[in-house]
Lab assay of single mutants.
Amino acid sequence: MFKRLMMVALLVIAPLSAATAADQTNPYKLMDEAAQKTFDRLKNEQPQIRANPDYLRTIVDQELLPYVQVKYAGALVLGQYYKSATPAQREAYFAAFREYLKQAYGQALAMYHGQTYQIAPEQPLGDKTIVPIRVTIIDPNGRPPVRLDFQWRKNSQTGNWQAYDMIAEGVSMITTKQNEWGTLLRTKGIDGLTAQLKSISQQKITLEEKK
């Protein structure tokens, strides 16, 4: 169930391209415009997507990853294993993690069937560096609404905000991946996880038929 919630949630996290980005210092504006741009692209490019579902990787690479804190999220997933990894191991892992996100997020976007969304009203940021933004996803086919909290983090150097995690039903996506990959990290280390991520990233994206 959580895996499905995570995939549905990713439908609204794909941010804007650099040329049309919203105010990078306001995570609420980023979330709002990102959702609108993403849904528009999914709707307008269905012919290309249906002809070649792996085209979704391109959308992810162009529109999402430049505005997601990939390395920060990847380091959180590694936890204690990050500090013990060599620079070469980290570089290989982050490259594999990025390719994994292209496949995983692309597969999530393949679930698009006309969903709509509501974003919580903007709250004062103050001096906060981590801000959760509640998004409610509404399914046109009558499924119950899904309420999610996207975690946005302020870059201490640039002042810009980027998304790095999502919490559904009190469970963090980062925590879920830590639990899912924990045994592999304990037995085969970061190299074993890197190899698995490379394998997963090679899987073809498949479209979910409308139910």
Rank of each mutant, 00 (worst) to 15 (best):
M1R: 01
F2Q: 02
F2W: 09
F2M: 15
K3S: 03
R4V: 15
L5Q: 01
L5Y: 05
L5W: 03
L5V: 04
M6G: 01
M6T: 04
M7Q: 03
M7I: 14
M7R: 03
M7D: 01
M7C: 04
V8M: 15
A9G: 05
L10I: 10
L10N: 00
L11E: 00
L11K: 01
V12Q: 02
I13F: 15
I13E: 00
I13K: 01
P15H: 12
P15L: 05
P15D: 10
L16D: 04
L16H: 07
L16N: 04
S17D: 08
S17A: 13
A19E: 03
A19L: 02
T20R: 12
T20M: 13
T20E: 07
A21W: 06
A21E: 12
A22R: 07
A22T: 12
A22M: 08
A22F: 08
D23F: 11
Q24L: 08
Q24N: 14
T25P: 09
T25N: 09
N26K: 07
N26I: 09
N26P: 06
N26M: 09
N26V: 04
P27R: 02
P27I: 05
P27Y: 04
P27C: 15
P27D: 01
K29M: 15
K29N: 14
L30H: 04
D32V: 07
E33L: 04
E33P: 06
E33G: 04
A34Y: 14
A35P: 02
A35V: 14
A35W: 09
A35I: 15
A35F: 04
Q36F: 14
K37L: 11
K37H: 10
K37T: 08
T38F: 09
F39D: 02
F39N: 01
D40E: 09
D40I: 08
R41G: 08
L42T: 09
K43S: 15
N44C: 10
N44Y: 08
E45W: 03
E45A: 12
Q46V: 07
P47R: 10
P47W: 09
P47D: 10
I49T: 14
I49K: 05
I49F: 08
I49D: 05
I49M: 08
I49A: 09
R50M: 10
R50K: 07
A51I: 09
A51H: 10
N52I: 06
N52A: 12
P53S: 14
P53W: 04
P53N: 15
D54C: 08
Y55A: 11
Y55C: 08
Y55R: 07
Y55V: 12
Y55Q: 13
L56T: 10
R57G: 14
T58M: 07
T58E: 07
Q62I: 09
Q62A: 12
Q62L: 08
Q62C: 08
E63K: 04
E63V: 03
L64T: 06
L64P: 01
L64D: 01
L65G: 07
P66F: 06
P66D: 15
P66H: 07
Y67I: 06
Y67Q: 04
V68T: 07
Q69P: 04
V70I: 07
K71V: 03
Y72A: 01
Y72S: 02
Y72E: 00
Y72I: 02
G74H: 01
G74Y: 01
G74R: 01
A75W: 01
A75H: 00
L76K: 01
L76I: 08
L76N: 02
L76C: 04
V77L: 04
V77I: 04
L78R: 02
L78Y: 00
G79R: 02
G79A: 06
G79L: 00
G79W: 00
G79S: 05
G79P: 00
Y81T: 08
Y82K: 00
Y82A: 01
Y82P: 01
Y82F: 09
Y82S: 01
K83Q: 08
K83C: 02
K83F: 02
S84C: 10
S84L: 11
A85M: 10
T86P: 10
T86E: 12
P87M: 08
P87K: 08
A88M: 15
Q89Y: 06
Q89N: 07
R90T: 06
R90I: 04
R90Q: 06
R90N: 06
E91Q: 13
Y93G: 02
A95P: 14
A95C: 09
A95T: 12
A96P: 12
A96Y: 15
F97M: 10
F97I: 08
F97Q: 05
F97K: 05
R98W: 06
R98Y: 08
R98G: 15
R98D: 08
E99Y: 12
L101P: 03
L101T: 15
L101M: 10
K102W: 12
K102I: 14
K102F: 14
A104S: 12
Y105P: 01
G106Q: 05
Q107K: 05
Q107D: 10
Q107T: 14
Q107M: 13
L109A: 00
A110C: 12
A110L: 15
M111H: 12
M111S: 03
M111D: 01
Y112L: 03
H113Q: 06
H113A: 01
H113C: 06
Q115P: 11
T116C: 15
T116I: 15
Y117V: 14
Y117G: 06
Y117M: 07
I119L: 07
I119P: 08
I119G: 08
A120C: 06
P121V: 12
P121G: 12
E122K: 15
E122V: 10
E122Q: 11
Q123M: 08
Q123I: 10
Q123W: 12
P124M: 13
P124G: 13
P124H: 08
P124Q: 11
L125W: 14
L125D: 06
G126L: 10
G126K: 14
G126W: 12
G126Q: 11
D127N: 03
D127M: 09
K128I: 11
K128R: 09
I130D: 00
I130R: 02
V131E: 09
V131K: 09
V131C: 06
I133R: 04
I133Y: 08
R134E: 02
R134L: 02
R134P: 02
V135Y: 11
V135K: 04
V135D: 02
V135R: 03
T136S: 14
I137H: 11
I138D: 12
D139V: 13
D139H: 15
D139T: 14
D139M: 13
P140T: 15
N141Q: 08
N141W: 08
G142K: 09
P144D: 02
P144V: 07
V146R: 08
R147T: 03
R147M: 03
D149T: 03
D149W: 02
D149Q: 03
F150H: 02
W152P: 02
R153T: 01
R153C: 01
K154D: 03
K154Y: 07
K154V: 02
S156G: 03
S156Y: 03
S156Q: 07
N160S: 10
N160F: 01
N160H: 09
N160V: 09
Q162M: 09
A163P: 12
A163S: 00
Y164S: 00
Y164N: 04
Y164C: 00
D165A: 00
D165S: 00
I167P: 15
I167K: 08
I167L: 05
I167N: 04
E169N: 03
E169P: 04
E169V: 00
E169S: 00
G170Y: 02
G170A: 00
G170Q: 11
S172L: 00
S172C: 00
S172E: 00
M173H: 08
M173D: 00
I174V: 03
I174P: 15
T175E: 09
T176R: 03
T176D: 00
T176Q: 00
Q178F: 04
Q178G: 06
N179K: 05
N179D: 04
N179C: 01
N179I: 03
E180I: 03
E180Q: 04
W181S: 05
W181P: 15
G182H: 06
G182V: 02
T183N: 06
L184I: 09
L184K: 11
L184D: 06
L185F: 08
L185E: 05
R186F: 00
T187S: 13
T187P: 11
T187R: 07
K188M: 08
K188E: 05
K188V: 04
G189Q: 11
G189I: 07
G189S: 07
G189P: 09
I190T: 09
D191L: 07
D191W: 10
G192F: 14
G192I: 12
G192A: 00
L193M: 04
L193Q: 15
T194H: 10
T194Y: 07
T194G: 08
A195Y: 12
A195R: 11
Q196P: 11
Q196S: 10
L197W: 14
K198R: 10
S199N: 10
S201F: 13
S201E: 06
Q202V: 08
Q203H: 10
Q203D: 14
K204M: 13
K204H: 11
K204D: 10
T206G: 13
T206I: 11
T206F: 15
T206W: 11
T206P: 11
L207Y: 14
E208M: 15
E208W: 12
E209P: 13
E209L: 11
K210D: 07
K211I: 11
K211W: 09
K211C: 11
